[in-house]
Every structure is written in structure tokens, then in C-alpha cells.
Design a protein around this nucleic acid. Structure first.
Lengths: 187, 187
DNA sequence: GTCTATAATAGGATAGAC
DNA sequence: GTCTATCCTATTATAGAC
């Protein structure tokens, strides 16, 4: 019997929390092992290439989770407003109402930025692409839709940074709320 | 003769580059000493409390620099548009056209976030305050001015994160350019 | 003031028992 | 599969020479 897939998913979930909170350098193997509830040596059994591999698989897992919780609603059929507000609800959950940082931020610092260059830019591209399509469906020109998509991603990232630095998750919640009203304004 | 003030300023300038690029945990004493051009022991002569003190003084120095290069133009007399565009030029210089991260981002991760809680939130408050005043002078209601100020700060922070993660400083330049046109839209 | 040398500890990674 | 024990290197920090 092959190793259960959910189990690894759960491990990656725990690991991702540490990486997102503390960044790549800030996440020590002791922290990571602790979060998973295993010894360091056991982690190396599952990730023979060590921390770098953990980060890589965590990024992939985060990407899948983001796709399911945030982007799937954007792409489904139905009225634009409903899909947008489902995405915003997904974002609130994914970022735990502004209390959990984004890996695009915390895994792009220093050495990690080089290490994960491609997955990071691909993740951004996917997000913007889904939003651009939504913007066009809402009646924006391709150019305006692309700008709107970029501004949405920027707003989320900026609000997360500000919430963390100011220690005030309300900043994130306010920003999400404003995004619910701004599609019409871009027209 | 007491130690020259510019010399310490220059040291803090070098240190701040490392902290901003690599974050608090990512900046090792070897990196920091190297950037300054001194041995590690010499750094401890100047900062007896080590890395924590360096970060603290770096944040203070960054605050002064930001105040001079970015916020001073916002507060000076003259037409609103001119002051806004001077701020944007200041931002482009301060963030080296999107290539140098903001300390609000990279020094708010993990342990550093707790360590520098107060200077970080104070820095944000100062920035938002100056922008809110500008917004009111431009004719916005106090409430709308506060929202506009928050959105400007969010846009800058988000654009910096995105530029870094996507490895594309153009994202930052575009965002700054858009900020030059958005004050009127908030009215 | 700055350096070399060195201590003390933490971090990443592996060996081998169970 | 997981653990204890261990290795090696990097990191923070200090002592003491110049």
C-alpha cells in the first residue's frame, strides 16, 4: 500500500504555516519538525533534499490550495459579482483574515527569492490571468482588465504587509471590502 | 572630538540595505560586517547589543531618510499635484525603482515583527498621516482622505512585494505612475 | 578602533538503533 | 517510520592583541 496522499498534504499544510509566518531563512528545521510533530530526522526521511525541497513542495501545495479556494470561484459560471465575492471570501479564508502572510512575500526574500524564482512568478501569472479574464467578462477592455487584475493582486499583497507591520488585521479586512466595490469603477 | 555623525549615518545606510534585502533573520553578522567593510568585532564596538540594536537604529535611520526624501515634499507649501509628484519621485528613489524592498515588509517577519512592533507601526502612522493631510487639502473629506492614504501605502507595499516575487521592477514603476492620477478619482 | 582568535550556541544534515 | 545521537558548519558574541 502506497503512502496516503492526505497525510503528506497535512504535513505540507503544517510546513506552509511556518514558512509563511517566518519566511524561508526564519523557518528552522527545529520549527518545521515541531510544527509537523516529528523529529528532524523523520522530516529528512520524507524530504531527502531538506529544507529546499520542503519549500518547493510547500509552494506547490499552496498553489493547489489557492487554486481551489480562491481561483476556482473566479473561473466558474455565474454572475460576475457573485464570482468576485466568492473570491474575496476565499481570500479572507486563505489569508486567515489578514493574520497569515502570503508566501509570495515571505518566500521571495533573499536566497529563497532566487531558489523559487519560477514557481513564484508562475503563481502570480496564474492569479493575474484568472482576474484578467474575469475583468474582460465584466466588460473591461483587455488592457483595463489587465490593469485591474494587477491592482487587485497589489492591494491584497500590500494590505497583508501593512496588516502585519501595523499589527492590525482590520487593514486587510477593509481592503478586501473595498475590492468588492471597485470592479465597476474600473469600467 | 566626538565621533562624526555622518560616519554612523553611512554605516546605518549600509546596514539598512542588507536588512531590507534579506530581512532580519536573513541578515547575518558576516553579511552586515561585510557590507560596512569592517570586521564583526568592530561592529560590536559600535553596537554593543548586537543585531537587535543594529536593526533598531537602522529602522530609526530609515525613518529619518523616508521623512526627508518622501514625506517632506508632501508637507511643503505649493500646489497639491506638484507635492504628490515630488513624493512619487521620492518613492522611486527610496525604493530604488522597485528593486530595494521596504523595511516595513522585511523587518516585520517572525521574531523581528515582535521586536520592532512599535517603530514599525509608528512609521506607518506617520506616512498615513502626511498623506491624509494632503488628501484633505486636495478637497477630500477626512474619511475619504484616510481611505485614500491607506490605499496609497497599500499600493506601494503591494507593488514592492509583487515586483520582487515576479522579479519585475516594472510592476512597481507602473503602480507609482498610476498613483499620480488617482487623487482626482477619489474625490 | 580595528583586528585575529575563539568561545558558545544554533542550524542543517546524516548514521544507525529500534 | 521514527527516534537518539552525532557531525559539521554557520552564527552570534566576546577576549585580548595591536
Amino acid at each position: 500500500m502506497r503512502p496516503s496522499r492526505t497525510s503528506r498534504e497535512e504535513i505540507l499544510q503544517k510546513l506552509s504555516q511556518v514558512f509563511r509566518r517566518d519566511g524561508y531563512t526564519g523557518a528552522s528545521l527545529a520549527d518545521l519538525a515541531n510544527a509537523v510533530g516529528l523529529g528532524k530526522a523523520s522530516l529528512y526521511q520524507k524530504f531527502p533534499d531538506g529544507k529546499a525541497q520542503m519549500g518547493e513542495e510547500v509552494l506547490a501545495e499552496i498553489g493547489r490550495q489557492f487554486d481551489g479556494e480562491v481561483l476556482a470561484p473566479v473561473r466558474e459560471a455565474g454572475p460576475i459579482d457573485r464570482r468576485l465575492s466568492k473570491m474575496l471570501a476565499g481570500l479572507r479564508k486563505f489569508y486567515e483574515d489578514g493574520k497569515l502572510p502570503c508566501a509570495l512575500d515571505t518566500l521571495s526574500l533573499g536566497e529563497a527569492g532566487q531558489l523559487y524564482r519560477h514557481p513564484l512568478s508562475e503563481a502570480i501569472r496564474h492569479w493575474q490571468e484568472a482576474l484578467t479574464n474575469l475583468g474582460e467578462e465584466a466588460g473591461l477592455s483587455p488592457a483595463k482588465a489587465a490593469v485591474w487584475a494587477e491592482e487587485v493582486v497589489i492591494s491584497i499583497q500590500g494590505a497583508l504587509v501593512l496588516s502585519r507591520a501595523a499589527n492590525d488585521p482590520e487593514i486587510f479586512r477593509r481592503a478586501v471590502k473595498r475590492l468588492g466595490k471597485c470592479l465597476a469603477d474600473s469600467r
